[in-house]
Nucleic acid binder design. Sequence first.
RNA 1: GGUCCUGUGGCCGAGUGGCUAGGCAGAGCUCUGCAAAAGCUCCUACAGCGGUUCGAAUCCGCUCGGGACCUCCA
Length: 495
Amino acid sequence: MSQLKVYNSLTRQKEVFESITPGHVGMYVCGPTVSGESHLGHARPYITFDVLYRYLTHMGYKVRYVRNITDAGHFEEEGREAEDKISKKAVLEKLEPMELVQKYTNLFHWAMEQFNTIPPTIEPTATGHIVEQIGMIEQIIEAGYAYVKNGSVYFDVKKYAASHDYGKLSGRVIDDLLETTRELEGQDEKKDRADFALWKNAAPEHIMRWKSPWGVGFPGWHIECSAMATKYLGAQFDIHGGGMDLLFPHHESEIAQSTICNHTAPVRYWIHNNMITINGKKMGKSYNNVIKLTELFSGDHPILEKAYHPMTVRFFILQTQYRSTLDFSNEALQGAEKGLKRLWEAYEWLMKLQVNKQEAADNELDAKVKQLATAFDEFMSDDLNTAKTLANMFELVPVINGLKDKHIAAGALSSDTIAFLQLQMKTFVEDIFGLKNVSAEDNGKFKSVMQILIELRKEAKARKDFATSDKIRNQLAEIGVQLKDEKGGEMSYSV
RNA sequence: GGUCCUGUGGCCGAGUGGCUAGGCAGAGCUCUGCAAAAGCUCCUACAGCGGUUCGAAUCCGCUCGGGACCUCCA
């Protein structure tokens, strides 16, 4: 197995991955804020890190995968009137905040299941860790890196920056941050514009509120990740993931908080996925171009020409290396849909193939197949290059189909090579890429019914009753089942 | 304005100095009762200008375009 190399945002280069504890990996991924429905943009990190999780597991690591649920509201805009997103919307919808949080959490879990992502090993909530967050804030105050003002607590960035490299992760220059002239309301509580809230005093209308040593309030946005990551993964852990948009201020602040509390840099490898764009623009609430996952799966959105299956979306995302932007379009999605179908059908046939012990009749082809399948590991270990891995799979598709068509002689490949190909395809297509069959109706009874229809069509064709054979084929096509005549008079179908 | 990233064929995307992915779409052929599927073949691009080099999509500079972050954000 090749050594895994990952691009570390902290050092801006690919590094060989070595876990702190041999055989174990601690991975924290920033989870969703459940104040609303997840959208296509959310699909990218959770699918990306699902693949990383699966790949690390494949490499033999025992991975503790922590992904939080942010269920405590945050400021609409820090500095302006504090506005708890979750409680505000709850009032509008006449729901209890936790009811709303539960609804969107359930919806998120449902969508993640559709994508066939493996649930994290621990999924902590922000509201469930208020005590830990308060404890951490107390430590920061004791260390002298935070100050209390009117029931709120702020992190003293300037003081931190004097002895630490604030801005290292995001490439921010501390002097620029301090000198920014923009004046915002309510900034007066902070000593410096660059300071960020650890705890925020709750206005009377806030529904979500907790007692703290500084009064009734709620935690700042960045502290939850520091607190929960520390609790479940320790003072220093291997991987922290999330979208690139979180680099600053979220992850930068996380580093500062954790460093003060734990006296060590919290994370060895920072891994960030790039954004999904739509017409070249990042998808996000502020851009008004959000496609919710429910809409994506149902096709119920003006931008969408049709519904897209979750597996199509997963495949679409995997066709790109995670650090590149990925541009959404109907054309691209439909391309992915067809590509996935072709790959999957070849894959299914390959898995059924059984051969007796044999030597390769075509040594050149045999070597090529072996080489292509071996390279899966090499590409994936090079910063998870799913795009290249997939490209190799597609180079193997004509070989598989050639065997199926008898266009390539059955004895061309050695039985060892076929077994190896089957193993590699199974491992990467299903176990690591997490792809699965798109057609839901493909159960036993349905298969039997299809077999009957196929027999009828074969018989009709044998007596040159093309009216009947065409009727079977065409009427099945109308309900979305495609019959395929194969070489040698066999038939198959796809839904 | 500051910091950073990026510009690949009709579309989506790999690729970091020579060998030049892959998918989708399109064209032709084979197979086939017809069609589809499948196979084979073709379409061979790297924003522009200059530079480095024997040689650049790949390195450097400039120009133009796109984007991200700096504010909630995957």
